[in-house]
Design a protein around this nucleic acid. Sequence first.
DNA 1: CTGAAAGCGCTTACAG
DNA 2: CTGAAAGCGCTTACAG
Lengths: 335, 335
Amino acid sequence: MRAGVSVGTVSRVLAGELSVKTALRDRVQDAIDALSYRPNVMARALRTSTTDVIGLIVPDITNPFFSQMAASAERAAFEYRHSLMLASSHNDREAEQSHISAFLDRSVRGIIIVAANVSHSAHVKTKVPIVSLDRRFADFPLISINHAEAAALVADHFYELGHRRIAYIAGPADTEAGRARREGFVDRIRALDAKAELEIFSGRFDYESGEVIARRLLAQPPNMRPTAIAAASDQQAIGVLRAARDLGLDVPGALSIAGFDDIHLANLVVPRLTTVRQPTDQLARRAVELLLEKALEPGDEALSASLVIRGSTAPPPPDQAGDQPTEGPKSPQQE
Amino acid sequence: MRAGVSVGTVSRVLAGELSVKTALRDRVQDAIDALSYRPNVMARALRTSTTDVIGLIVPDITNPFFSQMAASAERAAFEYRHSLMLASSHNDREAEQSHISAFLDRSVRGIIIVAANVSHSAHVKTKVPIVSLDRRFADFPLISINHAEAAALVADHFYELGHRRIAYIAGPADTEAGRARREGFVDRIRALDAKAELEIFSGRFDYESGEVIARRLLAQPPNMRPTAIAAASDQQAIGVLRAARDLGLDVPGALSIAGFDDIHLANLVVPRLTTVRQPTDQLARRAVELLLEKALEPGDEALSASLVIRGSTAPPPPDQAGDQPTEGPKSPQQE
DNA sequence: CTGAAAGCGCTTACAG
DNA sequence: CTGAAAGCGCTTACAG
């Protein structure tokens, strides 16, 4: 070695062991700097069978919510001096499994999974810590917002504005988020006013799904159709916005719309979308932190989301407000 | 070993060497399957100093164009039995460099870089093949579309529709794409009609940039403002759309708008955006293929883009069409 | 055709 | 406090 010491000593200096005498340490450090020496990651990994990379698997990197999540996770990983390796499962269970295997083969430090939509009970046996983010994977601890509580925020908002004829566009029932948001919203509306008219529809979380459902929904005569629509995702809500525009319906004058997630785009559509803000930075950071803890705690963690009120929600039109036709009970669910 | 052979032989079977006798090979393969043995990637990498991972660095994974690029690259890598490791540079030169170093440390098979916006002449000396994608990095070979040719397609379209008072919102002048698109558009318009009024503005590639510029531009009286605006990115164009909407301007009735890239969202805004489709799949695939070739060829490659005509472009309003005020030359550039 | 052995570049007990 | 040595799990000349 340039500094005339053994490789073992260099390794100790690199590891920051205090057992190495200061003078020697400085000399070695100088040599390291002078040669701009970088330890071989592979050799280290082979020896210790662990690395500084955290694997992240998202269902679809093309989805703005997940790409923001990925950006946040990368930032958090970086702060903890780790790298992030990102993979996209295309909502495909097999791809998800093969990505997990690939990560495990590389002996990553840990894996964060936003589970694919398809419900499944995978069995992954490994010493590598795994946490689920936003959508639970198998039975690994989950970091997410409290979906039900967050969805109830939207219900409160609609109710306070005076809406009593409301539609909810739910996410897939095979996702916890889809179910919890729906339940949170529906329960709160019912709790506030058992007589409020509430229609529920189920779809996927994407733009098209919201648009298709809204188009059908809004084709009804004004006194029949909802004065407010809450969606389980911003993408759905933007689809609704689009349908409303196509039908010449003023938002929020004739129809209020609220989304969920606060993706970047929510603040760019016209009108800007009232929505629930997911604290993606905090969620991603917690996932990273949990992974890095010596002993991975088994419990789930739920963070709080917040309501962001923007231009897409307002009181119902005057001729509709408070009118509570007792035309008999409507079928409350219709999926 | 379970099959009673040496590790060397196992290694040869795994490598598919034909020198191993068929009977032995089958026996070993059975043992491999039975134990579901997976070779240690780290050890292999240490020995051969190469891996099956391709590193991809994009300026901002949150930008839909890049996330689609990433998805395409991952698919292409997968087809060639490689994994993709994705990093986001946040348009920061230092982060970009540190990601390159991290990839090199992991002895990746190759690196694909969509360069950060900031112009710079990095010096990376390595045996690892590197290609630039979409935006050139240092002096590494570039895979991109022919931006000038593609932008000219939009110019042709506007001209054919009858627009003669046109604005162009350019991308950053410190990017090749920004410059080439602008040049392609401007040259074509000038070539078609030297008297056509053409105003040029420069901005960033994002939503806000388009919106801000358009707001100013469209505040002018109808006979002064352009009848068509071409933008250097879909995000800018969507910003323009938004400004037009806020000002109560009908698109495409009073104003035609065209974007560039054909991000997913372009087909979801109202009206749907006329734009230039980048063949992201092919671009990403070519980048991967180039990387995997034994000898990386130094030349650039340009693919062709195509015009996608949708609802945001139409002939100019009748009272504006063909009116060619000879009110003297306007200042052609104004940035 | 197949085995024994060297060696990739580290980390970490084990001596001293 | 520091060095010499073993060993992580592969691949690949080198023998035979």
